[in-house]
C-alpha cells in the first residue's frame, strides 16, 4: 500500500459510562476528528481482555486506543483501577518485544470531556500516521 494515501485503521475500545459518552458528546458538539476510528463499546475498561488488543493487531488494525473513566470515577467503583494494572503491564510488555509504543495507547476520558476525546483521537491518528502501517503480529490472511 502506498504510504502517501494510506489512512490508518484505528480501533477504540471505550467504556460505556464515561468514554463512550465523551465520544458521543464530541459528536453532538460537532467537534472535528479524523474518520479513521472504529469505536467498540465495552461495559467497562475492566472488561478489556488483552487478547482484544492483540487480536486487533493480528487482524491488521494499525492502532488501538483503550479508554475508560478517570480513576475514581468508575461506574463499577474500581473496574478501571484493576484494569490500570493490566494496561500498565501490557504496554510495557508490548514495547519490550519491539512493538512501537504508539501502536497501543491507553487513556481516560469522562462523559463531559468531548473536547478531550476529539483531541485525543487526533493525537492517536497523528501518532499512527507517523509510525506507519502495523506489520508486526499481523496475520497474513488479514
Amino acid at each position: 500500500m502506498e504510504t502517501s494515501n494510506w489512512e490508518p485503521k484505528i480501533v477504540a475500545f471505550l467504556c460505556n459510562w464515561c468514554s463512550y459518552a465523551g465520544a458521543d458528546l464530541a459528536g453532538v458538539s460537532r467537534l472535528q476528528y479524523g474518520p479513521n476510528v472504529r469505536i467498540i463499546r465495552v461495559p467497562c475498561s475492566g472488561r478489556i481482555n488483552p487478547l482484544y488488543i492483540v487480536r486487533a493487531l493480528q487482524n491488521g488494525i494499525d492502532g488501538v486506543l483503550v479508554s475508560g473513566c478517570h480513576p475514581g470515577d468508575c461506574h463499577y467503583i474500581s473496574g478501571n483501577l484493576v484494569a490500570r494494572r493490566k494496561f500498565a503491564l501490557m504496554k510495557r510488555l508490548l514495547t519490550y518485544i519491539g512493538i512501537e509504543p504508539e501502536r497501543v495507547q491507553f487513556s481516560w476520558v469522562s462523559a463531559s470531556e468531548g473536547n478531550r476525546f476529539a483531541a485525543l483521537m487526533n493525537k492517536v491518528i497523528d501518532d499512527i500516521k507517523k509510525i506507519g502501517p502495523a506489520k508486526k503480529l499481523v496475520k497474513s490472511v488479514a
Binding site: S78, R84, R85, K91, S107, W108, L120, K123
Partner: peptide, 13 residues
C-alpha cells in the same frame, strides 16, 4: 489495585 498506582503510561491529548 492501589489508588496511587502509576498513571504515567496514559496518553494525554
Amino acid at each position: 489495585f492501589r489508588e496511587e498506582d502509576s498513571d504515567n503510561f496514559i496518553s494525554e491529548p
